[in-house]
């Protein structure tokens, strides 16, 4: 195989590796949205996930425990969001922003308390590549798809699983009904409150895990504001993924492609200053919004709070 093909393969592999935070945060957002809970705290929850995941991995030397802790902390944010919006019926956007602020603060506070200021950045082991037996031996495809870290496999399987759950099972259909018309779902015996709680919590866990991916795969350490807008990009992704697990997975490929372009092309050296390349993910997202947002299909009850005792018109 010549040089050219090897480069192509390595880029394809890199793009697949880069989809993970977008897929996890996107699916987490989608899941909550399917019951009407519009989470806007992604950026903050991802920061907390990155911070907690890093700290626990650092202290225990175990990435698995780190990921678990990141999911737990993300789940707590989801729980808070569910409580404030479902029980107290507060404005989802405003309380989401408040949780975002708390997330920013906690994410930098925790490392300062636990580790303190060090001269060299404290490092954690990065996620190992897992080769799938037999499949990884297939030329080209094996190299791209079957020699990745565990979370790459997980995020793809998760997307398939969520699609199956939402579109091929009875309970999944009932869940979708909650996000479209909770009144109707309620009258058919679906527990609206319970579905809002679990989707917000599991959604938060996925978003937290998305944050933990950054120190565990990209940097090996936690730095302030390391999420760099990926949480906000995940919201955009969810919108033009039409709040569907399958299209969110494809959309994540697009985001990963742009990110890989932006970060890797500067290594090749171009006439364009690299800062302008780094603007690409954000500018491309705005551009895509121009073309796709009006067509996007959104759960009808998104961002609203359900009051059982209120009269239906």
């Amino acid at each position: 195989m010549n040089e050219f093909w090897l480069t192509i393969i390595s880029y394809a592999k890199l793009i697949l590796l880069t989809i993970v935070p977008f897929v996890l945060a996107g699916q987490g957002t989608m899941l909550g949205g399917r019951t009407g809970i519009f989470n806007v705290a992604q950026e903050g929850i991802m920061l907390v996930g990155a911070s907690v995941g890093f700290l626990v991995s650092y202290l225990t030397r175990s990435n698995e425990l780190g990921m678990l802790a990141a999911m737990l902390s993300g789940g707590l944010f989801g729980l808070a969001l569910a409580y404030f919006t479902t029980n107290l019926r507060m404005d989802q956007f405003v309380i989401g922003l408040a949780l975002f602020f708390i997330g920013i603060g906690l994410s930098t506070l925790l490392p300062k308390i636990v580790i303190g200021v060090t001269l060299t950045p404290p490092l954690i082991p990065t996620l190992k590549e897992i080769s799938i037996p037999v499949l990884s031996q297939i030329p080209v495809i094996g190299e791209i798809f079957f020699k990745q870290n565990a979370l790459v496999y997980f995020s793809i399987l998760l997307s398939v699983g969520l699609w199956w759950y939402l579109y091929r099972t009875q309970v999944g259909m009932e869940l979708r009904a909650v996000g479209e018309n909770p009144q109707a779902a309620d009258s058919l015996g679906v527990n609206v409150t319970r579905s809002r709680y679990w989707t917000a919590i599991v959604g938060g866990m996925l978003i937290g895990l998305a944050g933990a991916y950054l120190p565990m795969v990209y940097t090996g350490t936690f730095t302030e504001n390391m999420v760099k807008g990926r949480g906000w990009l995940a919201i955009a992704l969810t919108f033009f993924g039409g709040w569907k697990p399958d299209t969110i997975l494809y959309g994540a490929l697009f985001f990963a492609l742009i990110e890989v372009l932006a970060y890797r092309v500067q290594v090749l050296g171009t006439a364009i200053p690299y800062q302008f390349l780094l603007m690409l993910p954000y500018l491309a997202t705005i551009l895509v919004m121009v073309f796709s947002f009006r067509k996007a299909r959104v759960p009808a009850f998104l961002g609203q709070n359900y009051d059982r005792e209120k009269r239906a018109l």
Partner: peptide, 10 residues
């Protein structure tokens, strides 16, 4: 909301 946020990063 999203456009104003994303322009910060630009």
């Amino acid at each position: 909301i999203l456009t104003t946020v994303l322009l910060n990063f630009v």
